[in-house]
Design a protein around this nucleic acid. Structure first.
Lengths: 350, 350
DNA sequence: GGCCGCAATGTAAACGTTTTCATGAAACGT
DNA sequence: ACGTTTCATGAAAACGTTTACATTGCGGCC
């Protein structure tokens, strides 16, 4: 058994047919007698023959693989995203090549280039990627779908989360529940989601609480930064009535700061986050947040990409936005209890 | 720019050299005049030339890609595992092809076979995989590293978590803290980790609480099943003094059942889990658990696989076991407070 | 019976690289 | 000045497939 791997030629020789016939049988191309088919299959099975994908890709120009370029694999966001992508890919018989953790535009470029000839299409989520970047680093006929990106191009479909609408809905809820002074804990400056959520916050405040002063403190999406932001807010002369954090981890950190200071959430101050990560449900009190169906985002993006793989596809590229849903839990004053109906409001898709 | 992608021939023609020289320059094989190098590089850059990986793989027999076969991508365990793998792979310039969600041995076999010619080696974590399976579905010269597997073979290195020692350490701690009657919530019967944790529980009870009666209720690693198990335990005539769940999600579910029943954890009953997932820290009270350094497991396994990729490697295959560490938090009676030093006990590696 | 058409099969080119080997030129030692 | 070594370069084979095209054989039809 320490023999070399069987090739199509070995099968052909052993079955006393030509390689073409073997290929035809194994690919189901048709035009082969049932009798020959049987022989070929038997021999192939006996030799444990499996076609070499490199050779096949070379000639067909297809790899049946799609590449996913992500900034990192850390945290629930990416794990859910990749899960959605993987599930959808698998359903279509596509393989998934992941490439993550690039810090810097050069690094990202290398990662993208390294996929040449390895994938039929790419799903890209990276703050370093814009239209120029793609034009310079990718063959121009390679299907690409962008995630969470400000790029507006007729060439690349984009799928975004409706961060703005989600933020607006949450701020509106907070104000309507009687809390005019809503503070905001911002995310990283270069993060597209964070920017959109920031904009949403400002827009909602302008509309629903025009008289309240804006309070925005910096954060970087980490729990630690949320904790610091919480302490900073406590130190202010006029404490806000509610805090809206640009993501859940910061909201959790903020919650700890308030708890530490002896505040009663939500009575003294309300807290809300964004993402609806798993732990949002488990902190005490359970965290109100904006739910993003991340796995769905991955699935939808992959489905679009899969459609693009067919050269006959002519759907024009467009920017699509995925609605989110606010989930009101106890940090905003929802009644306690696991069975309490949660208030939800969904922002529409597209 | 809607031209066909440049090949090495295009570069050669344009640079007025042979394809061999282009190849040599771009691979840094040496034996090329600095002058020619310069020209080639310039032309390559101008044409946006990127070598086709399929062709390269075909001739070199290497793909610089490793495959990761996992049962699912859901939950923190797998996301951490894949993250550890990815990081280590990236550090070695290896790409990562993931394949997940197979339910059934045939499905897994297809997944494994489909990787033929796509990867240089594989990392496999699957309950369906044993030595026979691998022998039947893989070329016998393909490097493979197994994760979390009962397989003992001179052919395949295996990396396991020391579930047994971890379970023993936790049960011992519970008993030593004055709780003799420790109940166990078991995991899925077919899951290797779950089996080992079960064994550890029994061994520890036999040793440290030989007089206590064993109480084992079934579970399936889901929060829901933990909740049901918790209610089942409450219904028993003689309530246990502590509950050790085979994973954290079940422990959390169990915690809810107890909370719902008005019990005081840890005063009335102690609870412990296994895995140390993120939410263990965030539930109230914070959950005692056995910490598994999952990302490390992925990293170490990949490093071993990478070593195997070098045909000169002669290290014999062995089964290695990664120690875990018990983390005592409030569900076992540790003092509250974020800054309280957490009691930890580490079981040794290997 | 010869011819046509069709289905099954085979032959060989092509895919884009790497790499072995041959070639020729330059550098070197005597 | 001449043989020998070294070095840059090029030509061509090889990798394992798919597929366009050629060939074969055979039955049916006139």
């Amino acid at each position: 058994m320490t023999t070399k791997n069987a090739t199509i030629k070995d099968v052909a020789r052993e079955a006393k047919v030509s390689v073409a016939s073997v290929s035809r049988v194994l690919n189901g191309t048709g035009g082969v007698t049932p009798a020959t088919q049987k022989i070929v299959r038997e021999v192939a099975a006996r030799l444990h023959y499996v076609p070499d994908n490199a050779a096949r890709s070379l000639i067909t120009g297809r790899t049946n693989t799609i590449g996913a370029v992500l900034p990192d694999l850390y945290g629930e966001f990416f794990s859910e995203l990749i899960r959605g992508i993987d599930l959808a890919a698998r359903a279509r018989g596509l393989h998934l090549l992941v490439s993550s953790s690039h810090d810097g535009v050069e690094d990202a470029a290398a990662a993208v280039r390294a996929m040449r000839g390895r994938v039929d299409g790419m799903l890209i989520l990276s703050e370093y990627v814009d239209a120029d970047f793609l034009g310079n680093n990718l063959p121009d006929n390679l299907p690409v779908v962008l995630l969470d990106s400000p790029v507006k191009s007729a060439r690349y479909p984009v799928f975004n989360i409706d961060n703005r609408a989600g933020a607006i809905a949450m701020v509106r809820h907070l104000v309507e529940s009687g809390r005019e002074r809503v503070a905001f804990i911002a995310g990283p400056k270069t993060n597209f989601d964070a920017q959109q959520r920031d904009k949403g916050y400002r827009a909602a405040m302008a509309k629903h609480a025009p008289d309240a002063q804006l309070t925005i403190v910096a954060g970087d999406f980490s729990e630690e930064s949320g904790y610091r932001a919480g302490r900073e807010l406590l130190a202010q002369k006029k404490r806000p009535q509610a805090v809206f954090a640009a993501n859940d981890m910061m909201a959790v950190g903020c919650l700890y700061a308030f708890k530490e200071a002896g505040l009663d959430v939500p009575k003294d101050i309300a807290v809300a986050g964004f993402d609806d990560i798993l732990i949002a449900r488990y902190v005490t009190p359970p965290l109100s947040t904006v739910q993003v169906r991340i796995a769905d985002l991955g699935r939808i993006a992959l489905e679009r990409l899969a459609a693009l793989l067919d050269p006959a596809d002519t759907t024009p590229a467009s920017v699509q936005t995925l609605g989110c849903e606010i989930v009101i839990r106890e940090t905003c004053g929802a009644s306690a209890g696991a069975t309490a109906p949660r208030k939800r409001r969904r922002t529409p898709n597209t």
